[in-house]
Design a protein around this nucleic acid. Sequence first.
RNA 1: CGGGACGUAGCUCAGUUUGGUAGAGUGCCAGUUUUGGGAACUGGAUGCCGCAGGUUCGAGUCCUGUCGUCCCGACCA
Length: 483
Amino acid sequence: MANNNNNKKLVSEITSRDTDFAKWYTDIVKKAELIEYSSVKGCLVIRPYGYAIWENIQRLLDRRFKDTGHENVYMPMFIPESLLDKEKDHVAGFAPEVAWVTHGGSEPLAERMCVRPTSECLFCEHYSNVVKSYRDLPKLYNQWCSVVRWEKTTRPFLRSREFLWQEGHTIHATAEEAVAETEQMLNVYADFCAEDLNMPVIKGKKTESDKFAGAVSTYCIEALMHDGQALQAGTSHYFGDGFAKAFDITFTDKDNTIKHPHQTSWGVSTRLIGGIIMAHGDDSGLVLPPAVAPVQIVIIPVAQHKEGVLDKANELLGRLKTAGFRAKLDDSDNSAGWKFAEYEMKGVPLRLEIGPKDIEANQCVIVRRDTREKAFVALDSLEASTSELLAQLARGLFDKVAANIESRTYTCRTMDDISLAISENGDGFVKAMWCSSEACETQVKATTGVGSRCIPFEQEQISDKCVCCGEPASIMLYWGKAY
RNA sequence: CGGGACGUAGCUCAGUUUGGUAGAGUGCCAGUUUUGGGAACUGGAUGCCGCAGGUUCGAGUCCUGUCGUCCCGACCA
């Protein structure tokens, strides 16, 4: 049932993944028509095929947000300087990378405004107006928008100056409730990555030095790319009542005392698309998880000029669409081979070939993008087979990423262990004990090149000494190079 | 923000050393033959040589500036 033969590179325009991973990445985003550069550094045109992936991400995440009780809102894109200045840690963290608006038309503004780098200030201002009583709590809001951060070095999807994201902002009567929200949303992200992006992630907490500006604690999900570098795929922050105090948000509780509420925020961005590319892609191009692929199955008619082939192809297209698949028929006059390569480049999970011989046999050929396995599928069971193959492919992608994490996670007890593991096996996650001092965090990065990624929720007692200073340590940290 | 490379047709690039009519491959368009892994032939169209100054009789080529892209570091979703 399955044959195949080649893993050879069929698309000569793409740099080989193992030759130059960075170049491979930028080739993919261009050749698969995800983006085009614009004339402003770090601001990209997201093309229809790239945007369709984002729309699928939005749709699936938005469903999960609604299912956990959240509502969508929209905040202004400008923040007056005085508003940004209210929470001192927050402004200190973001001030170096905000873009400022100083004029309206030709008139200088009385107060300059920044283009939002994130919207905590705006949500806080709003909450201070609408939260009065415990009866007004909680508020579980989310916003889909773009934000601007004036990054120095930019890369498509991974780090751009304007990027699309969602930011959830919630406000609660108690700390316990806010902490539970922070953890819940981290789990929503991790589940989404695993189930819909087929990309397992590590859940954990950022170190003090690495947490969000203004947060009490920052949780994160860390994904591992094919080349062994980590990607922060999402964050969820617990703010305590720090913002509430800075922005004077208060409510009267059941006991008739005035209190400060507790807040959270959480976000994922179009960076996830970069994660999909680097976690699943190969030398022939993108490999898209079925849940977010704009086209899940492409029909390639073979010998389409022959009587009955296009009619049959259209019939199959109709059946697949009716069954709820995102299907496409390419009846252009490009050669079949050209189409094979084109849709592999674009990462379409399944390719259905239908030609005169197949019609004769009342079957078609379905080829998986990830393994290139060919299956001869009886037309009578097309829908069921397609469904099963998509599920198998999704599992296959997940298992492959999980195996990559497994083989690239190194347990280390000394600094030499770390350097050795990386030089022998390549980049990856390093698991090592840490004494909680920022000095050691800095030292490890300076000597070995791996920075702290997160304190994973799943702890292991590798040893009782800090990998760096040798002092007693009870925390195991994940370290790695990051995008 | 430091170090390096680069910007010429839709794409990949040659031409820059030594200034002198703008090039190739591929793609695109038309037609014919093809069609189970990026087809063949014939004909055709396509350029503010990134942008702005300067030097020169003359600039893709030399000089200055600027914008953008990539790589390596430092900082960040």
